[in-house]
């Protein structure tokens, strides 16, 4: 069946590869038989099955990461035709050829398209993106969350820490220590939660540390790139407001 649909039509790829964290990057071309409905992940799987480049040389297969294959885990984020996005949701039919695939170089490259997004998890730890519920005794149920608030907070909770917003941000680079839009939006999420709100100052103060919210330069690429449509710039502006208020409260001792 698959053989029957694999027509003579070819799909051309130009993949930026790197053999190790410190190795030099190089570009390798691939030509794969077209299959209806194929996406970048299925193309990479095809290369894995038959690791031969466009010149016909047998090569080490291209490394990449993926999990859910339905754009909710964020693992397969890479730069496809210049835009950072999830490879599993990048349909070949909708891409201009040759399809250029690069790792998200804002992060350290482990190998080929595999990157290390540890800094995002470090950022989440820094801003305490969780809700402390432990006590020395049963604290009982927390306050109720208004339904209206739950609805917009749910949008913020869709963040999958994929790293696309950091890749698109001109202020996340090796000259700054900006934590990036994702963690700032998470502060808004956890500070809007009725129980999380009880520790809101800790998170705001984390955003006021070096590399915190002041790193934003308002290019607003993040909100245009987010695959989940999270209102990141609204979150950033709201956190600007809350940190500013917090700053004055601190000074005035209220």
């Amino acid at each position: 069946m698959a053989e029957a649909t694999a027509s003579s039509k070819k799909v051309k790829f130009m993949i930026t590869r790197q053999d190790g964290p410190d190795a030099a990057a190089y570009t390798e071309e691939f030509e794969l038989p077209y299959r209806p409905g194929m996406n970048v992940i299925s193309a990479l799987m095809e290369i894995q099955r038959n690791p031969v480049n466009a010149k016909g040389e047998k090569i080490a297969p291209v490394c990449w990461e993926s999990n859910c294959l339905e754009e909710v885990c964020g693992a397969c984020s890479m730069v496809i035709n210049g835009k950072p996005r999830q490879a599993c949701a990048a349909l070949i039919d909708k891409l201009e050829q040759p399809i250029r695939i690069q790792p998200m170089k804002t992060f350290p490259v482990v190998r080929d398209l595999v990157i290390d997004r540890s800094r995002m998890f470090t950022a989440l730890k820094r801003v305490k993106a969780w809700i402390p519920i432990d006590g020395t005794y049963d604290l009982g149920p927390g306050p109720r969350m208004p339904e209206k608030k739950r609805q917009w907070a749910y949008e913020l909770s869709k963040c999958m820490t994929c790293g696309v917003c950091l890749e698109s941000c001109p202020n996340v680079n090796d000259k700054t220590d900006f934590i990036g839009p994702a963690a700032i939006s998470q502060v808004r999420l956890f500070n809007s939660h009725p129980t999380g709100e009880m520790n809101k100052e800790e998170r705001l103060e984390a955003l006021m540390q070096d590399g915190g919210i002041e790193g934003c330069g308002n290019s607003q690429n993040c909100v245009r790139s987010c695959p989940k449509g999270i209102p990141l710039t609204t979150s950033i502006a709201e956190m600007n407001k809350q940190t500013t208020k917090h700053m004055f409260k601190q000074w005035l001792g209220v």
Binding site: G82, K83, S168, P170, N171, N173, K175, T176, G217, N218, S219, Q220, N221, R224, S225
Partner: peptide
């Protein structure tokens, strides 16, 4: 500190 990327992100705000 800026690392402009207007080539790939050709948006008005950028």
């Amino acid at each position: 500190q800026a690392k402009p990327n207007n080539g790939h992100f050709n948006y008005e705000r950028n």
